[in-house]
Design a protein around this nucleic acid. Sequence first.
RNA 1: GUCGCGGUAGCUCAACUGGAUAGAGCAUCCGCCUUCUAAGCGGAGGGUUGUGAGUUCAAGUCUCACUCGCGACACCA
Length: 562
Amino acid sequence: MDYKQQVADVLAPALPELAMADILAKIEQPKTSKQGDLAFPTFALAKIMHRAPQMIAGDVVEKIDQTNFEKVVAMGPYVNFFFKKADFSADILAQIMMDGAHFGDAKLGNAGQVPIDMSSPNIAKPISMGHLRSTVIGNSLANILSKIDYKPVKINHLGDWGTQFGKLITAYKMWGSEAEVKADPINNLLKYYVRFHKEDVDHPEMDDEARDWFKKLENGDEEALALWKWFRSESLKAFQKIYQRLDIQFDSFNGEAFYNDKMAEIVDILESKNLLHESQGAEVVDLSKYDLNPALIKKSDGATLYITRDLAAAVYRKRTYDFVQSLYVVGNEQTNHFKQLKAVLTEMGFDWADEIHHIPFGLITSNGKKLSTRSGRVILLDKVLDDAVTLAHQQIDQKNPDLANKDAVADAVGIGAVVFHDLKNERMNSFDFNLEEVVRFEGETGPYVQYAHARAESILRKAGSPKLTAANQQLSDPAAWDTLKLLSEFPATIVRASEAYEPSIIAKYAIHLAKAFNKYYGNTKILVEDDDLNARLALVQSVSIVLKEALRLLGVKAPDEM
RNA sequence: GUCGCGGUAGCUCAACUGGAUAGAGCAUCCGCCUUCUAAGCGGAGGGUUGUGAGUUCAAGUCUCACUCGCGACACCA
C-alpha cells in the first residue's frame, strides 16, 4: 500500500492551490515517530497564502478526512499523519510472511547483464586489506543488483601481466626454489620480489635482466611462460582459499594477460578513426575537449599500457555480455583513468561508454600511510580474518560455551565483523586500519546485527517454530512501531542502495532494524499467551527474515545461534 | 600549480531529494540478568557542523572565497 499517496489524496482537496505532484514532493518522513509517520510542511503555502504556516497547518487539519488515519495533527508548521498501527502491521507482516526471503525483490533490471570488475589482486602478491574493499563492495553490489533482477557478472581482473613478472622471474632464478614456492607460494614469491627491489638499488644490471625476461615472456619463451603459468596457478590457489572464507565466487578470472591478443584491434580502430597522435615518441589520444590529459596508448618503445588493455577489456565485455551497465569497483585514486577510458571509448564512437561506471572507494591506510607491497607495509587479509575468528571463538567460549557448531559460528561472526565493518560506512570514506575497531563485536557492528537475528530465531525455536497464519497480525503496540515501519522500508532501501551503488545504505538499515528490534525485545515479553501472540511472533519472524536478507546482500552470514 | 575527494561530540561515523530540538556507536560515569541469549537494554555528560560571505521562509546539505588533510596529474597498474 502506498501510504504517501494516501496522504497526498487527503491533502489535495484541502490544498487546491497545489498540484498533486507538488504535494507528493513535499511530503516527508519525520525524524522520530513522535512526530508521526509522514508529515507535510506548510512553509511553501505560507508565501502563496500570505499567512503564517502554523495557522495553515491548523486549517488543513480541520479540512482533512481523517478516517484512514489514527490521527492527523498540526504540530507547528507541519501537518503530521499517524497511521493506523493495526492495519499497517497486518499489511506489512502478511507481506513478509508471504514473500519470505524474496521480500524486497523487484523487477527493475529486466535481466540485463552487469559485469562487475572487482577484487583484482596481483599475482605473486598477497591479498591485503586494500583488496578487501573492492572485493566486498563488488560482491555486495552483485547481490543487490541481482535482487532487483539484474544479472551481475563478477569479474576478477587479475594483475597477471606486466614488467613485474620479469623482475619476479629474475629474482626466482637467483634466490628461489621450487620447494619453497610450493610450500608457501604467495609469501615466498613476495619475498623474492621485495628482495629484488632492495638489491636492484645497488645492482642496476638486475633491471636489465628483468626487462629481458619480460621480453622473453611476451615473445612466448618456453621457460618464461612455464614459470609465469606456474606462479599464476599457485597464486590463484592461494587466492581461492581466501575467497572461500569470504564465501565469494567469481564468474570470470580473465585478467590482464587475457587481453594480450586483443589490444591490436583497439590500436587498429584508433588508427582507422585517426584518433592516434604521436607525442614525444609515444602514441596518444588527445582528450583536451574533455578537459583531460591525453591517453597514452603506446609507449615510445611500442609497448602498450594499462588503458589500452582496459579498452580491450571494455570492448570484450560489451561483445561478450552485451551489458546494460559495466561497473569497475576500483580505488578512488584511479578516477582519472576511468574518465580517460570513457572518453576514449566515446571518441571511438561507442555510445555504450555512458553505461560504464567507476565505483570508487576511499583508501585504507596504516598509521596514516598508504599501503605498499614493495616497502613491505601490508596488512594481510588472511591474518586479519584469522584474528577476527580467534576473537569470535573467545567470545563464544565466554558467552555461550555450550553452543553447537562453534567453529562455523566463529567463522561467520569473525569474518562477518570484518566484512560488515568495511561496508557500513560510505565507500568513499578513507580509514586508517585499526584491528580492534575492525573486529569489534559490540555497538554498531556486524555481530550486533547477527545477534539480533539469533535472538529472533531463538524466540521462534522456543515458540516451537510455529506455522504462522496470515490472520491476526494486527499489532498496535507502540513499542513495536519503529520495528514495523523499518520492516516496511526494506524494499525502498534496496533500490536506494542500488542507485547509489552504496552497500553502506543496506548496512545502516540493518543496524537500524537490529537496534529497533533489540529495544523491543528488551522491553516487551514476546512469549506470553494472549491475543497478540501470533502477531508478535509474525513480527519476530519478519525481523529474522529481513535481517538475514540484509546481511546476505552484504555478504555476511546470519547464524541461527551464537 | 591544476583537478578530484574529504573536514560534523575526545575517537569512529549518521543525517533519504534543503525542513522540526544536528543523531548513533566507541570511550567515561550510573542503573538493569529468579523473565524469551547482557555480543543486550535504559540513563548522564559531551557540538559555533574547518573559517567567512551569499541564495532561501528554512543550509551540515546549494553557490563563491579562503583554509587544512589525502589522492591523481602521459611512458606503473
